[in-house]
Design a protein around this nucleic acid. Structure first.
Lengths: 212, 212, 212, 212
DNA sequence: AATTAACCGAGACGGTACGTCAGGTCTTGAC
DNA sequence: GTCAAGACCTGACGTACCGTCTCGGTTAATT
């Protein structure tokens, strides 16, 4: 049972309602917790976010609805935790080689966007499927900002090494790369990932757009 | 923007059910039709797409629910028609000046994305809020593809005039621009549109990323 | 009348869906159940059966529509339970005195028919207001047949005691009495109950029709 | 087309909305009128009264809904006219022979009650399926009262001829007969008409109940 | 013969009620 | 004191009819 990551997970715990100790009483059943997460994932893939109902998840997990509400505050909250392993993107490394670092970061980005679960969740968050702004903020700070910060750092290092233009608008460069990947992976009818990272690298480092 | 395609076809009518003659019978009441569209727009802005219910629209429009179902097949169908004026983006012009054409196209794109109604609808369509694939296809062919085609044409003309590299991968260039705009206008917490079009133009024409 | 069959079976429960134990889970809220029955009765008296809508009952009872559907399968089902106390007619007693037994039975019949709630429900059942034949059958077996059987028994005892003609067609006699009461109480514009039981008794026992 | 009785019909016309002359203008189309009545009858037999909708009748008759409302004021109004031939019961004759007159009257009553259309309409009227009291009154005065009056007359003649007891309570006798017939023909699960008229005659004339 | 008013079919209109479903909360008895 | 179960109220869903209305077209009596 359970998609696991019980030990690896700083971000996956982000959505849980403080399960910490308060006196006696029966502790939470970890089997229920895992079963709910599993059921959430499979249901998500099958029905997408808007048609995922907590009742169906409860039924599949063999769990009472109230148990879900006890563990998570909302549907998005639950989904974010269930999808956490698919959303975890890591950080851009620092090897001393600008091209290698950026290339690694772009590969992380592309493979994350290419994950069906991630795609479903990203759209759900962007589309404001839940009116709760705090959740969007949590999503940003857990998955978006760390990667952006480390990519920005990588670019700054590239500037320092003269691999990139002096005083480069790093934010623009990051948005350009992220936006292009988003567009080619998630928006066009069929994902176009062949050579994508390399094209972006060439554009970034040499200002050359790809040719046919 | 977007006095655009007034002559090519009436996209606002695209969602209506059988708008033309079927024998005798009382014709549609244009007052009801208009009231529903108005109520849809204001409700959309207030509640976003997922919380927009047809019942509330009917109440606001002072109209029976059945009338809405008589005019439109689904919620997305209705919303697409109501939002049509906000989504109409026109086409990239052909003035003989590459920079001017692309600049105009980017301005169209940015101002469309900056429209709150457009943003709500675009997310709703992208996020697959309705399982109906035909609607997504209708959206693409009505709003996305014509602009992309005309922007691609503009780039091809730029290639022919040697303003752009020979054998430029036009699709990539378009996705790069669209993706960057999407990212900066719709995804980051606060829209970043200052100089956006100009930055993209410089990158496209001269391979130079903006500086701080 | 009709403290009657308190011990034979609880007819008021006849219409309830699965009223008994199925594992854990929150039990039915008796306050909701009772409020719905009360609202049904008052609405029935005010609007008669065909204009009684479950939506209005729900509104009056301060209850969700779904709760009604959870407790009863149909409108008639609900009405039958709400009206049960007004329909309960008891059985014809066995005192050893034919005249007294039949007289008691007729009084039961007349006062039941004279109850406005009973009248409304009886007509609803007879008129086939619900296409469900099983409900009509339930009504018959709960209220009609027991009384008829006990009245038939009383007449048989009267035959045995020579108070009534040998080989009397008991079914005919019962239908004659029931039909006459039905006609005089429910069909004519103003109920005509004065002397009704006595007239029927005289006709039954002595073959004499009443005079003016 | 049309169940006819266009010429015989005092009562059938009772429900029509004064079609009389006011200036020029097209007169009512008798084909539409007849088609509606036909569709009403077949629909009535198939769906019973409560499930008979004017929309279905209009569809079957190939007629606009408004045409029905132009001709009749209400559903019961329409049904009463469509069913008129099945409800027409005639009057008890005056042959000088009490037994023969009453027998004829009972036969009329029994065969009317045995008509499925009549049964459906009678129940609809009795059950108060329409809150309009005037319609019930119209039904009474058109079908019920004339027959009752003529039957009462026949009984009075029987009293005068000493075939019946002096000062007989004629109203009671009529209700007894009508009620018994109603009960045996319309209420019991299977109609019991064998010997019914004869049994009632024997009871009326000789005070003897039937035997097995 | 032209006019004209009421007819006709069709069906849109604002409503009410239907029976179902899911949301989020609350309650019970078992563990 | 958490668990599964499930009842509770709320409110939206999409459909069916209601009774009224408005069309364009037809038809017969009145001019």
């Amino acid at each position: 049972m359970s998609t696991g990551n019980a030990e690896s997970e700083p971000p996956s715990r982000a959505g849980s309602r403080v399960p910490s100790g308060r006196g006696p009483g029966r502790p939470r059943d970890p089997r229920a917790h895992g079963a709910i997460l599993d059921a959430t994932l499979t249901t998500l893939l099958e029905f997408w976010y808007p048609s995922l109902t907590l009742e169906r998840v409860a039924r599949r997990a063999g769990v009472g609805k109230a148990t879900i509400y006890r563990h998570w505050e909302s549907k998005l909250d639950l989904v974010l935790e269930a999808a956490a392993p698919h959303l975890a993107i890591g950080v851009v490394p620092d090897t001393g080689d600008t091209r290698r670092d950026v290339r690694e970061g772009l590969d992380q980005l592309i493979s994350t966007y290419a994950d069906p679960v991630a795609a479903i969740v990203i759209f759900a968050v962007l589309a404001g499927l839940e009116p709760d702004e705090r959740l969007r903020e949590r999503f940003r700070s857990a998955y978006v900002l760390p990667w952006r910060a480390s990519m920005s750092d990588a670019l700054e290092r590239g500037v320092a090494r003269r691999d990139l233009p002096a005083r480069l608008d790093v934010g623009f460069a990051v948005d350009m790369m992220v936006g292009t990947v988003f567009q080619r992976v998630l928006v066009v009818p069929e994902p176009l990932v062949d050579g994508l990272a390399e094209h972006l690298l060439t554009l970034l480092l040499h200002g050359r757009l790809p040719t046919r």
